[in-house]
Computed example of a mutant assay.
Amino acid sequence: MRARPLALVTGASTGIGYEFAKLCAERGYDLIIAADEAEILHVAEELRGGDLRVWELRCDLSTMAGVEALYGLARRLTRPIDILIANAGRGLGGAFLEQDYAEIRRVIDTNVTGTVYLTQLVGRDMRSRGAGRILVVGSIAGYIPGSFQAVYHGTKAFLDNFAAALADELEGSGVTVTCLMPGVTDTEFFRRAGMLDTQAGRSAKDDPAEVARQGFEALLEGRREIVTGWRNKLLSMTAQLTPAWLLAWSNRQLSAPDGRGKSH
């Protein structure tokens, strides 16, 4: 029997990553899934069934050791990774000067360093065989200076830019790179980022299953980028024409803790 294609999904324990893992399973992909929380074990059990195979790893993708452990698991399977969905990410709300630097560093290392390292390791293998699809989860936040989310928005600006550049570098190689840029989505993000006391934390949010569906379709089509939802499309276009100071002020209204949204 011919082996199923193989997908690797990071940050797959909850939210958009979990929905991506389900989509891959539904479309006939065996799975390697990873996250830094124990819930990833339960997700693996949920997804297993029939001849579908799932390998899970609880690891910290903010570290080189964590990335190497995940890549090592994939290499031991001696099967090519057909799809990489680099979804693992962290947020951090609050005023930059009041944040703990260890938390800042973990956001940067998870969102940027770990994503870049894993993408390079897997991407090299894909390029060598002339086939593969990579999806990087960026954000429309990358278009907006993120007052009271300065580090998170900065990491997403990097990812949006990085994915676009890599897609161009790999043009004609048989490897495609897609950047998914969602807006505010109904996940654990705001609780984990300490932002439940913000307007953004209380606002209506997009469905993670729909965000993942649109991203997955764009990935299979080989599109370079996808902004999900018409409101987010409008916001991303507007952001490119709006002065940075005004975007930062606007984001303050959404992301500042209660009582701190007014300008000084």
Rank of each mutant, 00 (worst) to 15 (best):
R75C: 14
M64Q: 14
A86G: 08
M64H: 11
G93I: 07
P80N: 08
L92D: 04
R75V: 10
G72K: 02
M64D: 14
R76P: 01
G91T: 05
G72H: 04
R76F: 03
V67G: 02
L77Q: 13
E68M: 04
G72C: 06
T63P: 06
L92V: 10
T78F: 00
R75Y: 04
D82S: 09
E68W: 00
A74T: 09
L84N: 05
A88M: 07
L61N: 11
L61M: 10
G93C: 12
M64T: 09
E68Y: 02
L73T: 09
D82N: 15
T63W: 08
P80D: 14
A88E: 04
L70I: 14
N87S: 15
T78L: 12
R79Q: 15
V67D: 06
L77G: 03
G72Q: 04
L61V: 12
S62L: 07
R79G: 02
Y71K: 01
I85H: 10
I83Q: 06
R90F: 07
A86H: 09
G89M: 05
L61D: 08
L61F: 10
R79H: 12
R76N: 12
G66M: 05
I81E: 03
G93E: 05
M64R: 13
Y71C: 01
G91Y: 03
Y71E: 04
A69D: 14
L70G: 10
E68D: 15
G89N: 06
P80A: 11
L92K: 08
I83V: 14
V67Q: 07
T78E: 15
V67N: 05
I81H: 01
G89S: 11
G91H: 03
P80Q: 08
A88Y: 00
R79N: 03
L77N: 00
Y71Q: 00
Y71F: 15
E68I: 01
N87Y: 06
A74K: 06
D82G: 12
G72Y: 02
T63N: 12
L84A: 06
G66R: 11
L84Y: 03
G72P: 04
L70F: 13
L61Y: 12
D82I: 08
I85E: 10
L77S: 07
I83G: 01
T78A: 11
L73H: 11
N87K: 09
L70K: 11
A69P: 03
A88V: 05
L61I: 12
G91W: 02
G93T: 09
R76D: 14
A86M: 10
A65M: 08
R79K: 14
I83R: 02
A88K: 01
L84V: 02
D82W: 00
A86Y: 03
L77R: 07
